[in-house]
Amino acid sequence: MKNLSLHILILLLFGGNNQQAFAESDTLTVGIYHNPPFVIKTEDNNFEGLSIELWENIAQSANLTYRYELYSDFVGILKRLEYQDIDLTINPMDVNDSRVNKFDMTQPYFISSIGVAIPYLNRSPLAVFISNIFSLAFLEIILLLIFVIFVFGFFLWLIERRHNKFQF
């Protein structure tokens, strides 16, 4: 799965232009989109999830006022950030060079390589054995082994053919 980052741009508040913008508006605009388990839109039009809880704890401890602005996708949020229509986003995103050059971003706080494992169809061991014997991967291994044996046999024949005339 991807490196995810909560890029809380609250750090920008402590830099020049954004501090002035925040002083003027007193309310941060937080761009979000539905992306479980990080941002989940509930039936009563509220939001919950990992990123929401983390942001609300940060905002509460820093006495920040904010409002959420819902977008349909991640691209819309990136455009709004770039045009400075929103102050920050709390949805997870990959940290890459082009984004680091455009935005202040935090280090990734969630990295996962989640997978799902299920039993490989309830087949008999004999059926599994036969399917493995007649698979393309097994054929490639056998052909590689034959090639290696042929090459080493050829070199052995080149070296030994004059010294062991009874064998060759």
Results as ranks from 00 to 15, higher is better:
81 L>Q: 00
44 D>I: 07
86 I>Q: 03
57 N>T: 15
91 N>K: 09
94 D>R: 12
67 R>V: 02
92 P>R: 08
63 N>R: 01
48 E>Q: 14
63 N>C: 00
73 D>G: 10
51 S>P: 07
67 R>H: 02
43 E>N: 14
70 L>G: 11
50 L>Q: 13
79 K>C: 02
81 L>Y: 01
52 I>Y: 08
81 L>V: 01
59 A>L: 10
73 D>H: 05
56 E>Q: 15
78 L>V: 07
61 S>F: 14
46 N>I: 01
74 F>E: 07
58 I>N: 10
79 K>A: 08
45 N>L: 10
51 S>N: 13
92 P>W: 02
86 I>L: 01
57 N>D: 15
47 F>V: 04
45 N>Y: 08
58 I>G: 08
88 L>M: 13
46 N>V: 00
94 D>L: 13
68 Y>P: 04
74 F>C: 04
40 I>T: 14
90 I>R: 06
67 R>G: 02
62 A>S: 02
50 L>Y: 10
57 N>V: 13
73 D>Y: 05
53 E>Q: 12
62 A>P: 00
65 T>A: 00
84 Q>P: 00
47 F>M: 03
77 I>A: 10
83 Y>K: 03
88 L>T: 14
62 A>L: 06
49 G>N: 09
63 N>G: 02
43 E>A: 11
68 Y>Q: 06
41 K>Q: 11
49 G>I: 12
66 Y>C: 02
45 N>F: 12
40 I>E: 15
73 D>K: 09
90 I>D: 04
48 E>P: 03
86 I>P: 01
81 L>T: 01
92 P>C: 11
74 F>S: 11
44 D>L: 10
69 E>N: 02
59 A>W: 06
44 D>Q: 10
45 N>R: 12
89 T>V: 14
56 E>T: 12
58 I>P: 12
71 Y>C: 07
63 N>W: 02
56 E>D: 14
63 N>Y: 04
87 D>G: 03
79 K>V: 05
91 N>C: 15
47 F>Q: 01
79 K>D: 10
44 D>M: 05
68 Y>N: 06
86 I>N: 00
73 D>W: 03
81 L>E: 01
51 S>I: 13
70 L>T: 10
72 S>P: 10
58 I>D: 09
52 I>R: 09
91 N>G: 13
71 Y>S: 07
90 I>G: 03
67 R>T: 01
64 L>T: 00
89 T>P: 10
72 S>K: 15
86 I>A: 01
70 L>E: 12
66 Y>S: 02
54 L>Y: 14
84 Q>Y: 01
89 T>A: 15
74 F>W: 05
71 Y>P: 05
